Measured scan of single mutants.
Amino acid sequence: VGDQVLEIVPSNEEQIKNLLQLEAQEHLQLDFWKSPTTPGETAHVRVPFVNVQAVKVFLESQGIAYSIMIED
């Protein structure tokens, strides 16, 4: 199991704000291929294997929908 690319769908401005804060966490080494800008629009982010669980827990705790787009 390696890195994953998640497709994330924020449903409101609050969730977009939370994702932008997540993007700013440099220690997570997230690679946003497509940043969140509009509710209902997908964002794509590559998550290093060591941080996959932490990111998924965060998304679930914020009620942000996501799916695994690419499993490496």
Rank of each mutant, 00 (worst) to 15 (best):
S11C: 13
V45R: 00
W33R: 08
V52S: 05
I8L: 08
Q4C: 14
T38Q: 10
E26T: 13
P10Q: 01
R46D: 02
T42Q: 05
S11K: 12
V52C: 05
L22P: 03
N51E: 05
E41M: 09
I68E: 04
L59M: 03
G2D: 08
L6N: 01
F49E: 06
S61G: 08
A43H: 07
F32G: 02
L19K: 00
T38C: 08
D31G: 07
K34L: 06
A54R: 08
Q15P: 00
K17Q: 13
L22V: 03
D3G: 14
A54Y: 15
V55M: 07
E26F: 14
A65N: 09
K56Y: 08
P39A: 07
V55T: 03
E14S: 08
E41A: 10
Q62L: 11
D3W: 14
V5D: 04
V1C: 15
L22R: 02
A54G: 04
F49Y: 11
V1A: 13
I68L: 09
S35D: 05
N18P: 02
H27W: 14
V52K: 04
T37R: 06
G40L: 05
E71R: 05
N12P: 00
K34V: 08
H44C: 15
L30N: 01
E14G: 06
G63I: 02
A43Q: 03
Q62H: 14
I64W: 02
E41Y: 06
V9W: 14
V1H: 15
G63A: 04
S67R: 11
E60V: 06
E71Y: 12
Y66D: 00
E71I: 07
I16Q: 02
T37I: 07
E13Y: 14
E41V: 10
G63C: 05
V57N: 13
D3F: 15
E13C: 12
I68G: 03
V45C: 06
G40F: 09
N12K: 02
E26H: 12
K17S: 08
A43D: 01
F32Y: 05
A43T: 13
E23G: 13
I70D: 11
T38A: 13
L28E: 02
E23Y: 15
E13H: 12
P36N: 02
V50N: 11
N12S: 10
Q53W: 10
E41Q: 09
G63W: 03
H27I: 07
V1P: 13
D3C: 15
D31S: 13
V45A: 05
V5N: 07
A24E: 09
D31H: 15
L30D: 01
Q21L: 13
D31R: 15
S67M: 08
R46M: 05
V1E: 14
V45W: 02
I70F: 13
Q15C: 02
G63V: 02
I8S: 01
Y66F: 09
Q21H: 13
V50K: 11
I64T: 01
H27N: 10
H44A: 07
V50C: 12
I16G: 01
E71L: 09
G2T: 09
P10F: 14
P10L: 07
F49N: 07
V57H: 12
K56D: 01
Q29C: 11
A43G: 04
Q53R: 08
V57W: 15
L19S: 01
E60R: 06
Q53A: 12
P36Q: 02
E14H: 08
V50D: 09
S35G: 11
S61I: 08
V55G: 00
T42P: 15
E23L: 14
G40S: 03
R46A: 06
E60M: 07
P10D: 01
L28V: 04
D3S: 14
V1I: 09
S11I: 14
S67N: 08
G40T: 04
R46L: 09
E60W: 04
V9G: 02
I70P: 12
A65S: 09
I64L: 04
